[in-house]
Amino acid sequence: MSTQPQQPEPPEGAVAEPQQPEPPEGAVAEPGQEQDLPAPGTAEARGAGPEGPGPDAAGGPAGPGEEADEKAEHAAALAELEDRWRRALADLENLRKRHARELERERAAERARTAAALLPVIDNLELALSHAGADPGSIVAGVRAVRDQAVDTLARLGYARQDETGVPFDPARHEVVGVVEDPDVAPGTVVQVLRPGYGETGNQLRPVAVAVAKRE
C-alpha cells in the first residue's frame, strides 16, 4: 500500500502546471535558480553566520574617548619614569658629595695621626740641640737616640726599616746602585746597603738601595 499523499485533482477545464522535481538532498543549486534569501533585519542579513556574529561584528575602531584615556595613561607613566630618573640622579649626586667629604675627612685624620707620631722626634731633636753647647760629645748619643725613635715611629706606622745584607737580591725590595766583586759570596747577593728602605713588599715606602756581588 502506497504511503505517498494523494495530489488533489484539478477542476475540470483547468490546465495543470508542470511540476518541478525536487532536487535531491545536498545538491547544489544551478545558476539561474532562485534561492531563499534571508529576510531583511535578521541576523543572517547583517552578516552573522549560523554560529553567531563574526569577529568584527561587535568590535570596531576605538572612539575618541578611549584614545584620550590611552594617551593620558601613557603620559602618566612617562611622568612617573621621569620623576624616578630625576630622583636617582639626585641620590647619586648626594652620594658622590658625601663620599668626597668622607674621603677628605679620612685624609685629614691620617695626616694628623702621622704628624702626632713625629712630634716626639722633633721634641728630642730640640732637646739634643739645647745640650750641645754644654756637652758637645753628648750630641752624638742624642742624635742616635732620636734616629732610633724615628725608626720606631715609622715601624708603628707600618713601614719597618729594611737594611739586611747577605740576602739574595730581590727586585721587589731592592734597588741596585752598585756592583762589587766579592769572591766570598754568591753572585747576586746583597753585600752592602747604601740607603735603608722602609716597608714590606706591597706596602713599601721606598726600596733598599744596595750593592750586589758581581756575576761571573
Rank of each mutant, 00 (worst) to 15 (best):
A45N: 03
G63A: 14
Q149R: 15
Q19C: 01
Q35G: 03
T201I: 15
D123T: 14
T114V: 15
G60W: 13
I139V: 14
G63Q: 13
E51M: 07
D184I: 04
E200I: 10
P21I: 11
G202F: 05
V15W: 04
Q4D: 08
G47R: 14
A155R: 15
A128K: 08
P8V: 15
S130T: 10
L78K: 11
I139N: 04
E66A: 02
G166W: 06
R111C: 08
E93K: 04
P61E: 05
T201L: 11
A27C: 09
Q149K: 14
A211Y: 03
P18H: 04
R195K: 11
T165N: 05
Q33S: 09
N94R: 10
V210D: 03
V177S: 15
P168Q: 03
E102I: 04
L92C: 15
L37M: 12
G13L: 04
E30K: 13
T3G: 12
L157G: 00
R87L: 11
P187M: 01
E110W: 14
A29W: 07
L129M: 10
E82R: 05
R161Y: 11
V210L: 09
A141H: 09
P207I: 09
A77M: 02
V190G: 02
P64T: 03
V193P: 04
L37W: 05
P40N: 11
P168W: 00
L157D: 04
A109F: 08
P11Q: 12
G202H: 08
A209M: 14
V179E: 07
